[in-house]
C-alpha cells in the first residue's frame, strides 16, 4: 500500500490505554510490518515514556500539551482533535486507526468530517482488498448482521476498531523511536465546551470487564428487589453484576451495569443470564463470553440459541435453589 498507517492512541493515567496494543495488532492486518507504523499520542506532563517499550511500532509521536488528557479535555475531546488533526496534516498517512472508545468515537468522526473522507467505525476485522485499500467488517443493525465495507477512493481512510476485538500485540522488546512535538500553544478555549467536573460513581463489586464470572438480570426479574438475590449469588461466585438495558431503563439498577451494544462489552468464562431474552443488542456485549448459562421461562427465547447450558423456568423458583446449591459446593 502506498502511504503509511498512523495509530491515534489514547493515554490512561499516564500510561497506555489497553486499546493501544490492540490497535498495533489491527494495524498488522493492513500493512506489511508493524515496525513501519507510527503511533501518535496526545500527552500531558504525567506521561511516562517507559510504557511504550515493546510496543512493536517503529515510531511514537508525542503531542505534548498540558491539557491533553482525555479526562481534562472538556470531556468532549476538542483539544485532542485539534492536536491529532495537525499531526494528520503533517504526516499525511493513508490510514488512521483509532479505538472506538468514548474519546476515539469523537476524534475519528471529527477527523473524517474535517478531511472530508470516509470513516468505518466499530470494526471487528480489517484486511486489504485487491486495490490495496482497507476493507473492514463491522456489526450493523444492533449486531443482527455483519457488513463488509471497502474504501473506494484514494482519500484518507479513517477506521475505528471495537475495543477487545483484537488481542494485544506483544512479545517484542526494544524502544520505538520517539519524536516530541510541542503543541502547547494550541488553544481551543472559547469555542469548546468546558469540563466542570468528572464524577466517578461508586462501582459496586468487581468490574464487569475484568470478571471471570458475570451474573446478569433482565426485565424478566420484574423489579429491583430480585437484584438483591443476584448480588448474593455474585458474592458466592466472586462474580460481577450485570443487567440488560430494559432492567436499567426501568430504574431497577444503575446503567453502569448494562451489558451490550451501548453498555459494557464483557468476556468472562461464564456468563449467567436470568430473565434476559437475548436481543441482538444485548448479545453484542457478550459475544466473547465463553460459556453462556441462561435461566428463562420461555424455551423459545433467543438467549438459548447462544447458551451452552439452559434452564427453562420461573427465576423465582430456579434461582433460590441454584444459589443454595452453589453455597453448598465446596
Amino acid at each position: 500500500m502506498s502511504g503509511n498507517v498512523l495509530i491515534v492512541g489514547e493515554v490512561l493515567e499516564g500510561g497506555l490505554h489497553p486499546t493501544v496494543r490492540q490497535l498495533v495488532n489491527a494495524a498488522g492486518r493492513v500493512c506489511e510490518d508493524v515496525s513501519e507504523v507510527t503511533l501518535c499520542l496526545a500527552v500531558d506532563g504525567t506521561f511516562d515514556d517507559a510504557c511504550i517499550a515493546g510496543l512493536g511500532v517503529g515510531k511514537v509521536v508525542l503531542l505534548e500539551h498540558p491539557g491533553a488528557s482525555p479526562d481534562s479535555d472538556s470531556g468532549v475531546y476538542s483539544l485532542i482533535t485539534e492536536l491529532v488533526s495537525e499531526e494528520v496534516k503533517r504526516s499525511s498517512p493513508s490510514v488512521v486507526l483509532v479505538a472506538k472508545t468514548d474519546a476515539g468515537s469523537v476524534v475519528s468522526a471529527r477527523l473524517a468530517a474535517r478531511f472530508g473522507t470516509g470513516l468505518a467505525s466499530d470494526c471487528i476485522d480489517l484486511a486489504l482488498n485487491a486495490e490495496q485499500r482497507v476493507a473492514v467488517t463491522r456489526p450493523v443493525h444492533g449486531g443482527s448482521a455483519l457488513a463488509v465495507y471497502e474504501f473506494a477512493d484514494n482519500g484518507l481512510q479513517v477506521v475505528s476498531v471495537r475495543p477487545g476485538a483484537f488481542d494485544p500485540f506483544g512479545g517484542l522488546s526494544g524502544m520505538p523511536e520517539i519524536e516530541r512535538v510541542d503543541v502547547s500553544g494550541l488553544d481551543v478555549s472559547g469555542t469548546a465546551p468546558v469540563l466542570i467536573e468528572t464524577v466517578l460513581e461508586d462501582r459496586e463489586g468487581i468490574p464487569l470487564e475484568q470478571a471471570d464470572v458475570v451474573v446478569s438480570g433482565g426485565r424478566g426479574l420484574g423489579g429491583p428487589e430480585p437484584f438483591e438475590q443476584l448480588r448474593e449469588l455474585c458474592g458466592l461466585l466472586n462474580a460481577a453484576l450485570g443487567a440488560s438495558r430494559a432492567a436499567c431503563d426501568a430504574g431497577w439498577i444503575d446503567h453502569s451495569h448494562q451489558v451490550g451494544l451501548t453498555g459494557k462489552s464483557i468476556s468472562p468464562t461464564t456468563y449467567i443470564t436470568i430473565g434476559i431474552s437475548g436481543a441482538s443488542q444485548h448479545m453484542a456485549g457478550c459475544s466473547s463470553a465463553r460459556n453462556i448459562v441462561a435461566i428463562d421461562k420461555d424455551r423459545e427465547a433467543n438467549i438459548f440459541s447462544h447458551a451452552r447450558y439452559g434452564v427453562v423456568g420461573d427465576w423465582a423458583k430456579v434461582l433460590p435453589a441454584f444459589t443454595a446449591a452453589v453455597a453448598e459446593l465446596d
Binding site: G75, V194, I196, E201
Partner: peptide
C-alpha cells in the same frame, strides 16, 4: 462518561 458522568458547560 467511563465509570460515571461529567458536568460540562457548553
Amino acid at each position: 462518561a467511563e465509570g460515571g458522568f461529567q458536568r460540562v458547560a457548553c
